[in-house]
Amino acid sequence: MGRWITSEPLALEPLLRELDDPASGAVVVFLGTVRNENEGRPVRAITYEAHERLAEQVLSAIERETVERFGVRGCRIQHRTGLLQLGEASVAIVVSAGHRGEAYAASRYAIDEVKRRAPIWKEEHYAGGESRYLDGVPLTHTAED
């Protein structure tokens, strides 16, 4: 498994250990999980695909930017690929900070940037057996803006 992209189930403990820091007073964990409906259609699973090498660069850059912009002590992001069942986590974001205010703000920034910039695609599988790729956000070239 890669440091940022993995086909294994996401595990929080290793990420929390990486960010273990006596100067931290707040750790915010965000998990994106597979929901049982989208736009009114029952969803039974989602397949995630990534351009892995590019996605690892992008997620790494988002971690660095999150730390710099919000002055938090650490940020780790992992995104899963492959077939995920309902309730499974597709993305994990852990932010460690001195205080909760910047930790929450940084976490929100990080997940928004992942959704906007990471070269990752989801294919939803529906109850009836059909599936489709979702419309997404066109990738811009402003990765470092």
Binding site: G32, Y48, A50, H51, L54, A55, H79, S90, V91, I111, V114, K115, R116, R117, A118, P119, I120, W121, K122, Y133, L134, D135, G136, V137, P138, L139, H141
Partner: peptide, 22 residues
């Protein structure tokens, strides 16, 4: 890369549609 990137022999070019991760 931008649309004006000049391809070289042996390049691997990926077409990336709008993204939907998270």
């Amino acid at each position: 890369v931008d649309a004006d990137y000049v391809l070289q022999d042996g390049d691997e070019a990926s077409l990336l549609p709008p993204v939907s991760g998270g």
